[in-house]
């Protein structure tokens, strides 16, 4: 039942991303799922869940397997540190964390694609995409809390 719920959440997120595109820029809500998994379940689950989401995104993007896999895996892994002894989670740090991970995710995808395939967009477009995705995600970082918040 729990897995079915998560499958539905993942599918809904992918659909929501397509629906809510702003000026042709698709938001990066899947990052929030990976961030959530890493933050609440730790680095191993984060990296695994991130890899799964990344693989799906790579497959749906129709290019090649890797850029999203790497970026989401990294985000899943690194987000676990947001609730550990290294960082003390606060709503502000949550928002900043999500913003940073959104930028990191986009940069990794952009770099991987540019390196292993070809440069997907111009620098200006890339900056616009990253900016809009960060705008979408940052406020939601306040609401994604770690398990041990209290």
């Amino acid at each position: 039942m729990r897995y079915l719920f998560w499958v539905m959440v993942i599918v809904s997120t992918f659909i929501l991303q397509r629906i809510l595109s702003v000026s042709g820029v698709v938001p990066n809500f899947t990052l929030l799922l990976v961030y959530y998994a890493g933050l609440r379940e730790g680095s191993s689950t984060g990296i695994l869940f991130g890899s799964l989401i990344g693989s799906i995104e790579d497959s749906l993007s129709g290019t090649f397997l890797g850029p999203y896999l790497l970026s989401k895996g990294m985000v899943g892994y690194l987000s676990s540190f947001m609730s550990g002894s290294f960082f003390r989670w606060t709503p502000l740090s949550g928002a900043i964390g999500v913003a940073s991970f959104t930028i990191l995710d986009s940069l990794i995808v952009l770099a991987s694609r540019s390196f292993f395939d070809r440069i997907p967009v111009s620098t200006l477009s890339a900056l616009l995409i990253i900016f809009i995705q960060t705008l979408f995600n940052t406020p939601l970082g306040i609401f994604i809390t770690p398990k041990n918040k209290d």
Partner: peptide, 28 residues
């Protein structure tokens, strides 16, 4: 993880692209 993914991308850049979840494209 990083080494594996980079290796995977290097492999794909020289040969066929791997897209394991491409079948999801249609239903989505």
């Amino acid at each position: 993880f990083v080494i594996l993914v980079i290796g995977l991308m290097t492999y794909q850049s020289k040969s066929k692209h791997l897209l394991p979840f491409q079948f999801l494209n249609n239903p989505i």
